[in-house]
Amino acid sequence: MAERIDGEPVLSLSEVGKGFHGTTVLDGISLDVPQGQFVALAGPSGAGKSTLLRLVNGMHLPDSGTVRTLGENPAACSRGRLRALRARVGFVFQQFGLVGRLTALENVLMGSLASLRLPRYGVMSYPRAVRARAVEQLDRVGLAELRFQRCDTLSGGQQQRVAVARTLLQGPELILADEPVASLDPAASVLVLDTLKRISAEDGISVVCSLHQIELALATADRVVALRGGRLVLDEPAADLTADRLRAIYDPGETRAGQAEDRDGQADVRDGQAGACVGHAEARDGQVEARDG
């Protein structure tokens, strides 16, 4: 397995393009995500956010440009290597992707399948150590009490936290979240995002999370990246952004000329960006140390 060289970005896209049935969805996207950073991916529906996330773990392959995830190129991976890569990349879906008829614990255990050779059916078919770790992860998202409850009896927010626990059981180095709170009520949204944020900070896991809620994105993320019409139109530390500027991304009235202007201005910002991001990461590290102490 290709190991990431120290200091290399966890995720690196360069000039990535992708289309479906002749329609361009992503166009010339370049993006580096360093370790431990929480990136919010904003943009109106159809901007290409989901496609971008799916390119990262090889669920889609790019038409042009290259994707490097944890030092691997998903497009060049064999089936087995792609599975090994996916095991290191967590993915949280908007619709949770849980089996409603199974218990929370069994759904979490599915996160360990990549590390096990044979198919598993039922909680007791998983090794004891894995079961213990699964309960631990459920405890981390605050649902250890509900581990034997059927998932279709849980609330939306609880289901999404079960999905996060499943992802954690993989022991991921990068978590991708595709609108994880889009179908949750505000309180549950905050809880799920706080859980993701806490985990990102505690384990130094990078998170790329697409979000529609502007305030949530600004409050949670270290850095906000915005897409519009398949192009990257904004990439700044969350601290430097105001809600109004981010809201403008969603404004349907904004002209293409305005976008182009934005993009031109963007290039300068991006040049200065790398340094800003590193500084940001350092600040975050300091935070973690302070918490540990």
Binding site: G97, M110, L113, L118, P119
Partner: peptide, 17 residues
């Protein structure tokens, strides 16, 4: 799809998910 995204093999996806 979620199980595949976890890196599970096809037989595992079928039996577990």
């Amino acid at each position: 799809e979620a199980a595949r995204a976890c890196g599970a093999g096809e037989a595992q996806v079928a039996v577990s998910a």
